[in-house]
């Protein structure tokens, strides 16, 4: 086994890092402002990884560790799928798969006033945006975009929701459109919502299509772009017989 791990590589960008790896040395990049994303922490002049994953860099100055988990850590401006677990006079309590339940203020809707508070039963699926994630407080979510418009946020009626890893939902949301969605969309008509917390909602006219799409998405996690297309083609062939 190789023991050359203690040598100093010049850059770890694009490589797999494990917790404890020092990925950046601030002492020789003093004239820059950098932004650190998830999975990194600062210890004096050294930036080290807290999670295992791929170390990524995006121009001009963003650094983060990309990994896939079953658990979601809320971040501001993430769009997630939450489930209502309780409703109080000021807030709804929403489960977004994070360490704590999230608060959805009853006025955080487009044109929300005290007079038109929506009624959500326990178990309602909502498409929401994370607003605040202060430590020591429950995260806050909202059903409006930054300018106060509904913008598609709100309850998702009917359809089918399943849980995946955060990595898969990120892949499905990436642009250009993920191959599996593109291939499915050519033949079938359906509606989807992906939350960055690893929840996926699928809605279509017939339950048959919902099941096909859901299975295709769940199977695509470990496949490459071409493999995804082949998988979808085979699937569609099978059902058209």
């Amino acid at each position: 086994m190789s023991t050359e791990v203690s040598t100093s590589p010049t850059s770890l960008i694009g490589q797999t890092v494990v917790p404890g790896d020092v990925v950046l040395d601030l002492s020789n990049m003093t004239n820059q402002t950098i932004k650190l994303g998830s999975g990194l922490r600062q210890d004096n002049d050294a930036i080290s990884a807290m999670r295992a994953g791929k170390f990524r860099f995006s121009k001009p100055n963003k650094y983060w560790v990309e990994s896939s988990h079953k658990r979601y850590i809320p971040r501001p401006e993430d769009t997630v799928l939450g489930i209502v677990v309780d409703s109080k006079s000021d807030n709804f309590w929403v489960d977004i798969k994070g360490p704590q339940l999230a608060l959805l203020p009853v006025l955080a809707f487009e044109g929300g006033t005290r007079r038109n508070i929506p009624k959500f039963e326990v178990g309602t699926l909502l498409y929401v945006r994370v607003v605040k994630t202060n430590t020591g407080m429950n995260p806050e979510v909202s059903c409006t975009d930054a300018s106060g418009k509904a913008a598609g946020f709100g309850p998702l009626k009917d359809g089918f929701m399943f849980e995946t890893s955060t990595g898969l939902s990120r892949m499905l949301l990436s642009s250009p459109t993920c191959p599996v969605l593109e291939a499915l969309g050519k033949k079938l008509s359906f509606e989807t919502a992906f939350g960055l917390n690893g929840r996926v909602w699928v809605h279509a006219a017939s339950p048959r299509v919902v099941i096909i799409v859901a299975n295709a998405l769940m199977n695509s996690e470990t496949l490459s772009g071409t493999q995804q297309r082949i998988m979808v083609e085979k699937l569609l062939e099978k059902i058209s017989e």
């Binding site: 023991t3 791990v5 203690s6 040598t7 100093s8 590589p9 010049t10 850059s11 770890l12 890092v17 494990v18 404890g20 790896d21 020092v22 990925v23 950046l24 040395d25 050294a46 080290s48």
Partner: peptide
């Protein structure tokens, strides 16, 4: 564990 480091040798 033995970690990878971009810091110069011997500084950690």
């Amino acid at each position: 564990n033995t970690t990878l480091s971009v810091l110069p040798e011997g500084s950690s």
